[in-house]
Structures are given as C-alpha cells and as structure tokens.
Design a protein around this nucleic acid. Sequence first.
RNA 1: GCGGACGUGGCGGAACCGGCAGACGCGGCGGACUUAGGAUCCGCUGGGGUGACCCGUGGGGGUUCGACUCCCCCCGUCCGCACCA
Length: 840
Amino acid sequence: MAADEARSGESVEVRPYDPQAIEARWQREWEARGIYRAVEDPSRPKYYALGMFPYPSGRLHMGHLRNYTLVDVVARFARMRGYNVLNPTGWDAFGLPAENAAIQHGRDPAEWTYSNIAVMRGQLKRLGFSYDWSRELATSDPEYYRWTQWLFLLMYRRGLAYRAEARVNWCPGCQTVLANEQVVGDGECWRCHSKVEQRRLRQWFLRITAYADRLLKDLDRLPGWPERVKVMQRNWIGRSEGAEVHFRVQETGDDLPVFTTRPDTLFGVTYMVISPQHPLAARLAAGTPYEQAVAEMARGLALREHELAEAEKVGVPTGAHAINPINGEAVPIWVGNYVVMEYGTGAVMGVPAHDQRDFEFARKYGLPVRVVIAADGVPLEGERLEAAYEGPGTMVHSGPFDGMPSEEGKRAIVAELERRGVGRASVQYRLRDWLISRQRYWGCPIPIVYCQRCGEQPVPEEQLPVLLPPQVEFAPRGQAPLATAPEFYHTTCPRCGGPAVRETDTMDTFIDSSWYFLRFCSPREDRRPFDPRAVRYWMPVDHYIGGIEHAVLHLLYSRFFMKVLYDEGLVEQEEPFQRLFTQGMVTLGGAAMSKSRGNVVDPDEVVSRYGADTARLFILFAAPPDRDLEWSTAGVEGALRFIQRVWRLVESYAPLVAGVEPYRPGQDGALLGPDERALRRAVHQALKKVTVDCQEQLAFNTAIAALMEAVNAFYRYKDRPAGRPHAAVVRECLEILVLALAPFIPHVTESMWESLGHQPSVHQQPWPAYDPQALQVERLTVPVQVDGKVRDRVELPADAGEEEARQAALASPRVQRWIEGRTVRQVIVVPGRLISVVTR
RNA sequence: GCGGACGUGGCGGAACCGGCAGACGCGGCGGACUUAGGAUCCGCUGGGGUGACCCGUGGGGGUUCGACUCCCCCCGUCCGCACCA
C-alpha cells in the first residue's frame, strides 16, 4: 500500500513546503536546546570559524548574507565531521556613522548603535546561522573597550604607542585624521571619499613599523591565505634592500644621507635632489633667487600629495653642492617635487643613466647623464641614452670597480663605504607607523592624562575603563567632541594628584577589531582581556571569511596585535588566522549593490518571500564563493524549486520507509537490482563530491550541483515504469541526501530528518561516509579517438585490460572506416577514460 | 609603469594530474497530467549542415596521439599599488 502510493508519485498529496513555519520552529528549538553553544573540551579537536563581524549600520545587506552563509556552512560541516566548533558573532560598534546620525538627526550615537544592533540581530537570527549567541559582544560596551584600553596601555608600556607631531592625513569630510591605510584610491577617505588633505598635528601612533620584518616574513607561513592578499600586504610593507650613503654639503658641512637600492651606480651620481620638506631645503635656498620657489613647492606639497604621481617633475637648484663619498666629486643639490619626505631620508642621489625618474629630471634641466653600468645595447655616452637603463650589467666609469658585475658591485661598494665610515647596508620599508588618534566622539577613549607637572601619564589599570561620557557637543569643527566636555577631561594626575586633563581624541575603530577574535574565546572574562586557557584551546581562527577590502587594513593590524601579544607571552601563536577566505561581491546589473546606485535587494525581503534556506541555497549555488555573484530572482526561484523537489521526495517516501532499517553497505549487495544499484551509485557519488568539495575548498556550487544530480537520479528511480521500491535502499539514500544537504539548508533538512522518523537534530549527526563499493560500475563506455578526434565509443567491462580495450577499439566498424588504408602506429589506452588510435 | 586575477553556450557557471568541452541551474522549445496551469513530472536545447560531416573555450603561434588545461607572443576586462629612490 505504502509502496504503491510512493510509486504513484505526485498523485499522493504531500504537505506543502512552508518555509516560514519550518524556519521559525527550528530557530526556536535550536535556541532552546543550545545546540550551537561552544564549550571548551580538550578531548575533542576544535574548529574556530569566523566571519568578519558586522558594523551595525542599520540593516543587513547581501554582502553580509553571503559572508555569514559561507561561514555557517563551514561551521556546520565541521560540526558534523566531529569538531568542537566555535562560531561567534558580535558588533564592530564604534564608528563614524553613529556620530553622523547624531549630527544629522540629533540621535544619541549609543542609542542609534544599539537599536541598529537589535534590528540586525533579529535579521541574523531569522537566517538561522549557527552562532553561539551567548558570546555576542559589541566593541562599544565598556566591558569590551575597557580591555581595548588595557591593550593600548600594554602597547604604551612596551614603547609601541607614542605621541608625535607629524604630517598626517586629514579628512575634511569626517573632520578627523586617518591612517595611511585608510587613504584609498586617488587620495580619498576610505569612508566618505573626500579628498584627503595634509596637516601637521600631534597625534598618537602605534609602532607597527617595529614589526615590519616579521609581518612580512610570516606571510610565508600562511599557506592558507590567498596569494592576492599576501601580495597586497607585501607591497604595502614594501621592503627594499640597499644602502645608506652619507654625502656632505660642501658649503655648510651638513651631513646629507640618502637611501639607494643601487649602490653600484654611485659613480653615476650627477646631482642630488631633496624633498621640498627636507629640513635642509629652506636653509640651503635661503638668500638664493630660489628661496621663494622652494617655499612654494613645500606649501604645494602639503596640500595634495596624491596628485604628484601624475604631476610633472619640477625642481629648482639650491646653489649648494654635495660631495660624493666614493669619489669626492661635488654635484649640485636640487629641490625636487618627486622626492617623498616620508620615505628613506627625504633625499635622493640623482643617477640619470640608471633611473628613469632621474633621467627625466636631468633631461629637463640639462643635468649631465653618466653611464656607469654597461650592457648590450646601452650606449656608453650619456648624451646618446634615450631612456635610463635600469638592469644589471658591468660597472664602468667607476674607478677601481670597473669591470665588476653590478650585483657584486653593490656589495663591494657598500663594503668600501662601511670601511670609510660613510655608509652601510640598509633596509627601508614603505610601511608607516599606524596613526590611531581620531577627533571623534564615538570611539574608545585613549587612556592617557596630561599633567602640567608630570607630563603624559597612562591611566592606571585599576581605573579602567575611561568611560565615554554621554551628552556631548557633536558639531564637527576640527576638534574632538570630548574637548567640549570639561566634566570628562578635567581629572587629576594619577602620579601627583594635581590637576590634569584627559586625552580627548578617541582611538581608530580598527583597534577595536584587532583583537575581537581573542575576546570571543572568553567574552565574559572580567579580570583580563581574555582567558589564556580559552585562547590556547580555540586560537588560531581556523577559517576566517570576509571581504577583500580588509586585505591591508584589519588583516594587517590584527596580525600586528597578535605578534605583540605573543611577545608579551599572552598568546601562543603569532598569527591569528590560519586560513583566510575572501568572498566576492554581490552584484545586480553587473555592479556592486549600493544605495546610491539604487540596485539593492534587501535580504529580509528575500527571506520573507522565499525563506532563509532558499536565500542561502541560491547564494551558495549561483557562483563560486570567491567570485562576484550576480543576483537573479529566477535563480532564487530555481533554488526554491530544488528544495521543494527534495521535500516532495522525502514526504512521499516517508510512509514507505517508516520503521525500515536503512540499507547498510556490504549487506547482500549482489542481491540488489540494477535500479537500486544505480540509485545508490548516484547518491554515494554525490556524497563523495560534497565531502571533497567542502573539505578541500569551499566549492559549494559544485557540491550542490552534485546533490541536484542525485535528486534527479532519485526521481528517475521513483518514476521508473516497473518494480517496487526497495525500502531499505530508499531510506539509506534519503538519509544521506538529507544529511549532505543539512549544512546548506539547515531548517528544511531538520524537518525532513524528523519526517524520516528521527529525533532532532540533524546537525548533531555525524557526517556520513560514502560507500566505495556503491561507486563501482560493471561496464563503462569509453570514447575512441583516431588521430585525435573522437570517432566512436565502445562499451567495456570496468576491469577490462589494455589489450581488451585495444581489441574492442580496433574492432569498431566506425574506427575501421577511419583507419582504412592507413597503418596503425600506436594505440594509447587510458584505462577507463579513452582509447587513442594513431595512424600518423 | 609594477603586481595580481580573469576571458568557456542566450545567462550564471562545470571540466580530476593534459584524456568525451558545456555538469548543475536559469532562460527557451516540446510532451505528459489537467477544466486550467504561472504547479508538477519527462524530453530537447553551442553554431552550421541536417545521416554518421565540419567548426567551436578572447586572438595568433608552439609542444603532444590528444590542449579550456602546458609554453611563447598579442588583445581585452577587473582589482591592488604607484615618482618609495
């Protein structure tokens, strides 16, 4: 009876698939049972899956949905494979938008932030992510930022936090300074895209440059990171090896060091060029006709450094000369706009024959060009040179070094300079120290006070947190809002007890996010930033997933923090993220979704209309996770259709398999009919594909495709004209299907698991093993090529030997037609794959 | 300029280590069921020719019995960095 019903398929009325009811029900149950709560258990291997926590901007967008869906699948898959999984979330809650809302709409930043969090938390919960919600945190909570301040003081104590006056990036839109990493594109603010200006200010910095070398070297210890991100970090750190060479100003006796990567070209120096901001520039030009020009250049640079890349090289002579330490030659000193004060020493030796920039400058101002590296096709006379030769060669016009290969010459010249005490080997980095002061309110207060008597004083640990005061004046006027709150900044000196004032700038929010992954290990710890035991168990993050936009911001800063904590002995690893995955964008009409472009699709609307499982399935299936994903409503409907197809399959078979034990591998295998064998093969093949695709890469799109094929095979079995269904095999295959789908569509699979007579939760089941025997076939069809073109297919026993395959191929009439009149020179047999007959 | 990624049907995308190009899905066409279908199930769907043939993975060369895959040159798209000495 049950069998007949099952076989008659669609004539059986099955309950309709109701995603809203199903999803609400299981979300409630999961929460009530606490099945995603993570508890340290040293007897089990751990797995820390983490998505880059969201900024509570108001509502979730598709990027969030994609990001967290990927993390959720990784977490669920790991859980089923027996790992003790930590998958937390929280809120990167400090930041400018909260403050802008305060300015524009008079809302309290805290109120704005926490009401956004409430909305977005609800959205995340409706998506059914397997978070351990008991670990939720917000960086704007005093219990969190207390420890951010503690970490700042740790940096301070280690000499890694310092205050200095420097030329800094000033965003006129946000009315605050920015770190170099936050100046993006064409010199724009990463947040509001205003053109960044330069100002001189006294600000707090973190000495990330002290870790430049380790940050660079350890990239090689991160095989689980995308090459792209590592390259970006390498370029950002920008290590170059070379030499520092000390020239001397002939007229004043001043020391004038330069950095060069080409000490082998030292004999080719025909002029010296210094940055307009170089301390010597104004001094040397004073009293010359160029005094005013130099001053103007310095001013011009202060405004828009980023435009220089396109600007023409401009320079003026100072009238002074520099003496080359290698040969005693005096060359003119120029001031040039192409020299960056912040890199190297702010002075460059001009070698026009072997540096294209110097070449252009020399040609423009009629400076001599002297060839000192000879190579094929390079004229020895500088006047005939059409472009600088920057490659290696043999040294010429270089006194005692003539004839030496240039690579060797680099070492030889440095040795000679060292011997004479006028130079040494040197390494330069492009990386600058991290400017962390922000003239904003909604951030973590910097725990420093200034005492007239004792100077700069760290706030003692026991006085933390320095609380952000409510109710301050926000109108941006280039000054920190906290500077308008005397009740905040008036304090007493922790050392002498005398009157003192607090620092009124707040910290860059990237500090908050540089350690949150550690806090998640023990989020309620109230005596330390984190419990070392918990950190030892959970860290490092096994799989970190987020957007590429953090390649050199958050990801570099977090690595830096981790290394400092390692040096302090607080953590045992130096690298926070073992494996990193950067997902692609979600686009509509080929462009990233954005409010200003008006092409956003709201995840919430998709969930209300189709359900979270459908939204997830579409996102996972429509594109490989690292590529951009074009949103498609038709595609979403396809995903829904697939879920319904599986739903009907399970529902219509449920009566048949009720109370039946599943078929077990190895059990009377020979007795199964061909239809059952075909069904098992399809299902186990899919299971194998899902297992491999999810384990080795995040190839969820192909994993899901494989499951779709299995479902198609299931329908072929169900709708075949004759034969009663084999209940045990059907149960086995249905269970595998449901288990393998569980990480992708967690709610509906829970209901299916129940329909199959099981107790929840499907997510606490072990991942099934595929049966290698089920994959075996008796006969297979192999294509036969003649001279590289497929001419026929032959059917062979699966275990056919080479000779058998060869005979079968040559016996084929269609192959014979193609080899007629020719000599068969070779037959290549690729077992199980193809046979290639060669006549040429 | 330097560095990285990519280029496959009408569309999103498959293809292990060099071995049947186009899995799976969307869209389209046809059939079944049906009062009806925008539901469901099944079939077809790269182009030309319409019998078994030819062409086809951005373009051109090469290696190979065999190339989306490897090598060389070129074109195009996207991203990052950019007078960094």
